[in-house]
Design a binder for these strands. Structure first.
Length: 878
RNA sequence: GGAAGAUUAGCUCAGUCGGUUUAGAGCACCUGCCUUACAAGCAGGGGGUCACUGGUUCGAAUCCAGUAUCUUCCACCA
């Protein structure tokens, strides 16, 4: 783009992205180089880009671009996730809008709609990532439900089933009696709801099914479920109820006898201390039932009505039944009292129906072995969690891992490869044909139409946990003994993965499990956890709140580089991100600064015959060192995943050191030309700087790199080697720092005295000031500097390091005296503090020599300052 | 209710083994400047009892205990 204009990001972004794509710079194939691999956390296939994605993918892109410039074979595999629950509910909603209820469709018809929807809306998010500059290897784009990956999922299921780790069990699900489907925990909304606490009398049985006159009282919110009671439970430590031991009680109205049992689960001071146990209709009761081998009696049907097992009120809706049974209990004399009570009740997010806990058959994967190995992977350090505070969470999860319920009552997903024979026996095989064969081995007469495939699909995580393997070699999952293909062998294990801590268990831990199982190796070396993106006042970014800006709008307004900077500036690992548009503005300002500095440098005329002024020569030597030092710091930050620190180091190097000091020093006077040596050095520094920034700001750096010199078609900054840290001279850096301090001091005096910027001053420095950097002070403070003695002159003085700087100028003596006195008092106080410390015997005895030396230096410096102030005061008072 | 983490300037955060610190950045703010790369800028400046209370130590933002507030994850109580 044109140099004499303001920087316009939209003018360059599309151009360079297209250029990068055209030359396949993002594409990677196995070769002799060291690979650096990241797999993308696959976003929902029908999702759209939000700020969380921006953060995550910016970090991914920074890491991958950095690795690419470090000479590694960088491969970032993109893709999307079929997200069964989210996608299916979107499709259901869409169909509903069209007036088509899901239950009017067959599975095949529904799936046809779903695939249509996916083709139409799928992958938008991947296109949006390009706007951000994401350098993914698009040729490797994967989708968790594409045929090959689905096959991997099925093979995995079959593998674990044959290994004996997958079993069918019973579990409480959240049943929506209106939608007639199970819903996930996430789709249940708990709302505090006004209800009643019914205190019911259960009479003790005489042993022959007849009530005695003794009774106990239980409190319940669901009297309509008493017919399903399997026991009454009390806490074994509760002395009030010891008399009940071994007794049986009768369920009111139906007079069924049930035992009294004891379990720690019961809270002694909640309700009456007696709990009715209804295993079929309460999650906890179910678990108590398991512990005590209680029978399970289901009395509520799929529509939420009482069934014939309830014996009474058969066919009534559960809420109607509740009202009626209360009346019946009252009439029968079993109702002691009713209390108003507010309790959290689960409602279906979709239908707002009250959720009914329902037992259902589900498929489970045993976790104990897998979790043990996954814990070992992290504890041994083969996979590192960053920040490591998540280690505790991880360990807790792995040590308490419950078996993984992998079936879902949905259609969108990989259907469970289990087939049922007419007699109920199950065969598990990868294909229908293989299943038929297996079935015929059991029962030779079975025909294809006699075996029925399981209706459920697999949990989405059951496909995404294979991601780091299946994106490279879909044949591998389910076959630990198979040789990995060339891609998998080369790219696995991947290096880093960037994701949110909320899915540490759902995804990260499980990828480690599958990696260990199928590859015998961890899937990645580092897990970098980002925070959650929040708005200024700390709320989660969400569509419903409307507080999430559209990243594409932001990119259009500020540029992708600015948005990337804005996200990174406030993102230390694992901490939540408080997003504020001013950070993106800061990013845009940085782009402008870089652009403008380039305009300056490119605008210079070069005089081939000129020699470098002393100030420029010093500046070049100094900045080369400064750059080396900064590169070293940046590398250190990257190695510790301190990305925002790395960015801030570069930001300050460019803005504060390169622009504010270096360029000001070497800048030729108006109308003058620059000498060739300085010019070349300046361009060299500029190139090093933009290479350093490129991983963070890919677009502007490519534009400038291309303009900086004549580049051949097919060249790119993306493969320009990262600047390497060289040696630097700490003495030079320190001397320059003194010069900077002197300049700042002189400017301060000018400011204070209201002197014009160009009014020449005479400055005297004492012998301990490094004379080598005097030209710097001369050039930047517009003064003539010389070593000298301030004796007999009027002016202001200050101390830089250990040397005195005296500025000769006309001053208001009174004012100067007041100021000096104030400074003097402060220094004396400081000195007293230091001396107190140094006279402390314990300090001298215990502190490291280094620290004591430092204190002595402080003392000496303070003394020097005091001396200098006193001298100046004396001179002024004369 | 259980667990983990956090609390440093108006805001967002660094502070790496307890000692290069009289606690640092960036943004915001205030003052002065449309100075020939840049007002999306330049030169300056103010602003902190490191949540609170104790303890350990020669020395604490840093380690320990307690208190308060917040966040997240898990369980949500018949």
């Amino acid at each position: 783009m044109e140099l004499n204009t303001k920087y316009n990001p939209s003018e360059v972004e599309d151009k360079w992205y297209a250029y990068w794509l055209e030359h396949k710079f993002f594409h990677s194939e196995p070769d002799g180089r060291e690979p650096y691999t990241i797999v993308i956390p696959p976003p929902n296939v029908t999702g759209i880009l939000h700020m969380g994605h921006v953060l995550n993918n910016t970090l991914n892109d920074v890491l991958i671009r950095k690795a690419r410039m470090d000479g590694k074979n960088a491969c970032w595999v993109p893709g999307t996730d079929h997200a069964s629950i989210a996608t299916e509910s979107k499709v259901v909603a869409k169909l509903k809008e069209m007036g088509i209820p899901k239950d009017s469709l067959t599975r095949e018809e529904f799936l046809r709609y779903a695939w249509e929807w996916k083709e139409e809306h799928g992958g938008i998010i991947l296109k949006q990532l390009r706007k951000l500059g994401a350098s993914c290897d698009w040729d490797r784009t994967r989708f968790t439900m594409e045929p090959e990956l689905s096959e991997a999922v099925i093979n995995t299921f079959v593998y674990f089933y044959k290994k004996g780790w997958i079993y069918k069990g019973v579990r409480m699900v959240n049943w929506d009696p209106e939608a007639l489907t199970a819903v996930s925990d996430d789709e249940v909304i708990h709302k505090d709801t006004q209800s009643h606490f019914y205190h019911l009398k259960y009479y003790i049985s005489d042993g022959a099914g007849h009530p005695t006159d003794q009774y106990l009282v239980i409190a319940t919110t669901r009297p309509e479920t008493i017919m399903a009671d399997a026991a009454i439970c009390v806490n074994p430590a509760d002395g009030r109820h010891h008399w009940l031991r071994g007794k049986k009680v009768l369920i009111p109205l139906i007079n069924r006898e049930i035992p009294v049992i004891e379990d720690d689960y019961v809270e002694m001071d909640f309700g009456t201390g007696c709990l009715k146990v209804t295993p079929a209709h309460d999650v906890h009761d179910y678990e108590i039932g398991l512990r005590h081998s209680l029978p399970v009696l289901e009395i509520i049907d799929d529509h939420g009505r009482l069934n014939e097992k309830a014996q009474i009120l058969v066919g009534e809706d559960r809420f109607v039944a509740r009202k009626k049974i209360v009346k019946m209990l009252e009439e029968a004399g079993n109702l002691e009292k009713v209390e108003a009570y507010t309790s959290p009740v689960g409602y279906s997010e979709r239908t707002n129906a009250v959720i009914e806990p329902k037992l259902s058959a589900q498929w489970f994967l045993k976790m104990d072995e897998l979790a043990k190995r996954a814990l070992e992977t992290v504890e041994s350090g083969r996979t590192r969690l960053i920040p490591d505070k998540y280690m505790n969470t991880y360990r807790h999860w792995m040590e308490n891992a419950r078996d993984w319920c992998i079936s879902r009552q949905l259609w969108w997903g990989q259907r469970i490869p289990a087939w049922y024979l007419p007699d109920g026996q199950v065969v598990v095989e990868p294909t229908a044909e293989a299943a038929l064969k297996a079935a015929q081995a059991i029962c030779p007469d079975v025909k294809a139409e006699d075996i029925k495939q399981d209706e459920d699909v697999l949990d989405t995580w059951f496909s995404s946990w294979l991601w780091p393997i299946s994106v490279f070699d879909p044949q591998k999952p389910g076959h630990p003994d198979r040789q990995p293909n060339a891609d998998l062998a080369y790219y696995y294990p991947t290096n880093d993965i960037v994701t949110g801590p909320d899915i540490i268990f759902f995804w990260v831990a499980r990828m480690i499990m599958s990696g260990e199982e199928f590859m015998g190796k961890e899937p990645f070396s580092n897990v970098y956890f980002t925070g959650i993106v929040r708005d200024k006042i700390g709320r989660k970014m969400s569509k419903t709140l409307g507080n999430s800006p559209d990243p594409l709008d932001l990119i259009a307004q500020y540029g992708a580089d600015a948005v990337r900077i804005g996200m990174l500036l406030c993102s230390s690992a694992g901490n939540d991100i408080f997003y504020d548009e001013s950070q993106v503005e800061q990013g845009r300002n940085f782009c402008a600064k870089i652009w403008n500095s380039f305009r300056l440098v490119k605008g210079w005329k070069v005089d081939p015959a000129a020699t470098a002024p002393e100030a420029s020569a010093i500046a070049v030597r100094w900045f080369a060192d400064k750059l080396n030092q900064a590169v070293e710091t940046v590398e250190d930050h990257y190695s510790k995943f301190r990305i925002s620190d790395a960015l801030m180091t570069i930001y300050r190097l460019f803005w504060d050191e390169y622009c504010s000091w270096y360029l000001e020093l070497v800048k030729p006077a108006f109308g003058q030309a620059v000498d060739p040596v300085t010019y070349e050095a300046t361009l060299g520094f500029f190139e090093a700087l933009i290479k350093l920034i490129h991983p963070v700001m890919p677009f502007i750096t490519e534009e400038l790199w291309q303009q900086l010199a004549v580049r051949a078609e097919g060249e790119t900054i993306m493969f320009a080697p990262s600047p390497k840290a060289g040696a630097y001279d700490p003495a030079l850096l320190q001397a320059f720092e003194l010069a900077q301090q002197a300049v700042v001091g002189i400017r301060g005096i000018r400011n204070q005295k209201g002197l014009a910027p160009k009014e020449a001053l005479e400055v005297l420095v004492d012998a301990s000031f490094p004379t080598a950097v005097l030209p710097v002070v001369e050039k930047l403070a517009l003064v003539s500097v010389q070593e000298g003695d301030a004796e007999g002159k009027t002016g202001a003085s200050f101390v830089v390091g250990t040397s005195k700087v005296f500025v000769c100028l006309k001053v208001n003596v009174e004012e100067e005296i007041t100021r000096l006195k104030k400074d003097l008092a402060y220094q004396q106080q400081f000195l007293a503090g230091v001396r107190k410390k140094l006279s402390n015997g314990n300090f001298v005895a215990h502190a490291p020599a280094k620290v004591i030396e430092m204190e002595r230096k402080k003392e000496a410096d303070a003394l020097l300052r005091i001396e200098s102030y006193e001298a100046a005061l004396k001179a002024l008072e004369k």
